[in-house]
């Protein structure tokens, strides 16, 4: 299939859309990471009220499609804020992604914290390592190692979920691909191009995460053999 001059123009638009997609995915992921780490630690506090509220909230957020959350923030956001501010698609999408994936990250952090062997806590106590040092140098590196595969997984899901924000009117990669497909009557090539963008990024992610996992698991390799 040959690409004509007008189609090349559409591919430039696609590239501009891809930048927006990446901005949304990266900012959403970083905010969810920070929010999830904080919420995950706070909800481990031995407080019944916090536990109960968290269980209900997490169940609600995890039981609803993220597309619905995006629509709710985009169409309903103005109403919920009393109609004072108009919400842009980017803001609505970013808010929805952060709200949803903060919960997933928090659950992951909670699970990782609980899976650090208790002997590690006892060992730091026995060696009289100060709490701050124990957390920085003993516990946290293990939490990161345990949570890493899940965090990579969440990044891939966030990246793919940014495609949904095009349905709330964001001019990202997917919406440009759709426009180009409609205008040129060549839908196949533009949708394949959009798909390949996501495929390449997840392949790059897998490469990168394999190296990260090797780095964080470096203490384990010796013991296992």
């Amino acid at each position: 299939m040959l690409i004509s001059a007008s189609e090349a123009g559409y591919f430039q638009q696609l590239a501009r859309g891809a930048v927006i997609t990446m901005e949304l995915a990266v900012s959403g992921y970083i905010l969810a990471l920070i929010g999830g780490a904080v919420v995950g630690l706070v909800t481990l506090l031995p407080n019944r009220a916090i536990q109960a509220v968290w269980r209900v909230y997490a169940s609600i957020v995890m039981g609803v499609p993220s597309l619905l959350v995006i629509f709710l923030f985009y169409y309903g956001g103005g109403t919920l804020l009393g109609g004072i501010i108009d919400i842009t698609p980017f803001e609505a999408g970013l808010t929805a992604l952060v709200v949803v994936y903060t919960v997933y990250v928090a659950e992951l952090v909670r699970g990782a914290m609980r899976n650090v062997p208790r002997g590690q806590f006892e060992a730091t106590a026995a060696l009289a390592i100060r709490p701050v040092g124990a957390w920085l140098h003993v516990i946290m590196p293990q939490v990161v190692r345990l949570a890493l595969p899940g965090l990579v997984n969440i990044w891939m899901i966030v990246l793919k979920d940014t495609a949904l924000v095009s349905l709330a009117g964001l001019n990202d990669l997917v919406s440009h691909a759709k426009t180009a497909a409609g205008a040129t009557k060549e839908p196949f090539i533009f949708f394949i191009a959009a798909a390949l963008f996501f495929v390449v990024f997840s392949a790059v992610t897998l490469r990168f995460s394999a190296r990260l996992e090797a780095r964080f698991g470096r203490g384990l390799a010796v013991a296992k053999a």
């Binding site: 793919k160 495609a163 949904l164 691909a177 497909a181 839908p187 959009a194 495929v199 990024f201």
Partner: peptide
């Protein structure tokens, strides 16, 4: 690697 939305299209 491809979002379900793009697969639909």
């Amino acid at each position: 690697g491809t979002p379900a939305l793009i697969l639909m299209y």
